[in-house]
């Protein structure tokens, strides 16, 4: 699969841009958290597109955001369960 570029993104409608980013992010996140990849990807897609592109190139920054989203998600779930 060829790398996603900002040029490819801006040529697409906004909603499709998020889908394109999600298609690339999901498999990476799925490797870290198979059970919650869809939810975590959905949360991360609210981040600015330029930052999401950077996260596709830098797995370290992706992992940091995934960890952040997961911590928030788990805290939220614990609160709901209580």
């Amino acid at each position: 699969q060829e790398p996603l570029t900002s040029g490819m993104l801006t040529a697409a409608p906004p909603q499709e841009q998020k889908q394109m980013l999600g298609e690339r992010l999901f498999p990476l996140i799925q490797r870290m958290h198979p059970d919650m990849a869809g939810k975590i990807t959905g949360m991360l897609l609210e981040i600015d597109n330029s930052e999401l592109l950077h996260m596709l190139e830098s797995h370290e920054s992706l992992r940091a955001k995934v960890d952040e989203a997961l911590a928030v998600l788990q805290a939220h779930q614990a609160k709901e369960a209580a």
Binding site: Q19, E23, G38, G42, M43, E46, A69, V72, H76
Partner: peptide
Amino acid sequence: EVFVPGQNVHAPAFVPSFMKD
């Protein structure tokens, strides 16, 4: 736009195309 974790928790889950019909 800044990532605000507390708000993002309500974002819908992403469904990749290979999981759709």
